[in-house]
Design a protein around this nucleic acid. Sequence first.
DNA 1: CAAATATTAGAACCTGGTACTAAAATAAAG
DNA 2: CTTTATTTTAGTACCAGGTTCTAATATTTG
Lengths: 203, 203
Amino acid sequence: MKNGGFHSGRRSCFVIDRLSKKDRHQRLIQLIDENPFVTDRELTRQLKVSIQTIRLDRMELGIPELRERMKQMAEHSYDQVRSLSLEEVIGDVVDLQLDKSGISIFEIREEHVFSKTRIARGHYVFAQANSLAVAVINDEIALTSSADIRFLRQVHLGEKCIAKAYVRSIPGQKGKAKVEVFTYVADEMVFQGNFVIYRSTGE
Amino acid sequence: MKNGGFHSGRRSCFVIDRLSKKDRHQRLIQLIDENPFVTDRELTRQLKVSIQTIRLDRMELGIPELRERMKQMAEHSYDQVRSLSLEEVIGDVVDLQLDKSGISIFEIREEHVFSKTRIARGHYVFAQANSLAVAVINDEIALTSSADIRFLRQVHLGEKCIAKAYVRSIPGQKGKAKVEVFTYVADEMVFQGNFVIYRSTGE
DNA sequence: CAAATATTAGAACCTGGTACTAAAATAAAG
DNA sequence: CTTTATTTTAGTACCAGGTTCTAATATTTG
């Protein structure tokens, strides 16, 4: 053995000594998590064990090699970019009757909440309602003109928001539509909004 | 030569013949753009040229090898995830006087606009204002209670939104603060919002 | 036709591994 | 204190997907 104390470290009676297998595994997971772009060779320096040990460890832990990790990240981001650019609406629209009504579902995930309180940031709840209000209008161009909104209670991590939109056309004005949106978690109303949507009819 | 017509295609008098160098370059760019995970070997099949030609072409066009492409995508997505999870606020807060006022800047990028019209989705403009309204409140917990908003004109791709927030405390109610936000592009006001923010004072 | 350009072939080498065999070192059990 | 089991290290052959370099053919152009 190369490392360890002067008398080639028996037990762990020396300060700078190898970690136990279990500890090393934990550290390995941590290191790769912190920097997924680390090579096995770099890991040998950090963990003071041979490259074979690193590779055995990765096997046991089911951690793929660097190139495979990068490939997976690349594929993931590729999919994400594709789906994001398709995401014309925040939340899944499950029902849509153009110029009448619509329903969308949106689940509050980690990225939508304040990390401290785990309460959803208002603009995500608004975004779901706004997207739905725009989607429900049967027009080439539909833009939010103004809105009057109310957050009735906090929405927490993991909760499913069901937004229901109803189109109430404004009789006098042709280029504008009024859309009412109510968002529920289970039976409880958490958000209420009155949107005035600009539409491009007759242009 | 291996491909081409029966008499080993002189000129381009045969139908199934190699493309010109220029056309091949265009096709190569297109193929890699469509599927960045394609190997050189797969490209030889598509373009009917040798692997050396593919590699020369990539050189000339400055297209890196598959592994480098994957690495770049992986790094890009890693950075994005990191910055997204750190993004406590939409827009850069450039000035903040707690319980008084604040300014944030937010540039409209591709991902914020309707692909058809290149006009910003309302909820991004709202999100900037909402984030700023919450940030300007000097409290552990600050949540949007209600808002009254107006989109004064469309914001386009590439425009920089400068949001200014002013706290107007509500004298009667202790747990609520009123925040006015005005968003400008250059000198033009594009958005106006009155937010009522719930605050946790004295709790 | 000759000269210039484009294409192909092939060998050596690189990174970051896998798969496998085998020998040490260390720990645990009898 | 041995013997056995586990853990760690060493070393070789091999792989994908390349780069880099030299050299030989095609093909096009003047």
